[in-house]
Amino acid sequence: MFKRLPEADEATIEFHFDGQAYRAVAGDSLAAALLANGIGQFGRNAADNSPRGPHCMIGNCFDCLVLLADGRTAQACLTPVAAGMRVRPYDPATAGSPE
């Protein structure tokens, strides 16, 4: 899995995923922040409910989808992490609903 190299380890931001607190580096995408914390599954596919995580990291594959606190769907690889951000795994059953 992925590990943060010492030179880049400036984790100062706290954010939440699925109710748990994690640390990230300012400038990380949500995808990088989650992978750096050992989280590989970001949600489930809308069509067949299979587990999914980031694949392409350039905004093309839409497998890194997560849900923001207000229920909006976001591509984790294109969304910067921010202090205090609350994120949930993408779940087709709850997409669109606020926390």
């Binding site: 990380d28 995408s29 992978l35 587990p51 980031p54």
Partner: peptide
């Protein structure tokens, strides 16, 4: 999850210093 492209992993190295 855990099957990615090589370019995706390289992007993580460039953008966030992840190995």
């Amino acid at each position: 999850p855990g099957v990615m492209t090589v370019g995706a992993a390289q992007t993580l190295l460039k953008a966030s210093g992840l190995a």
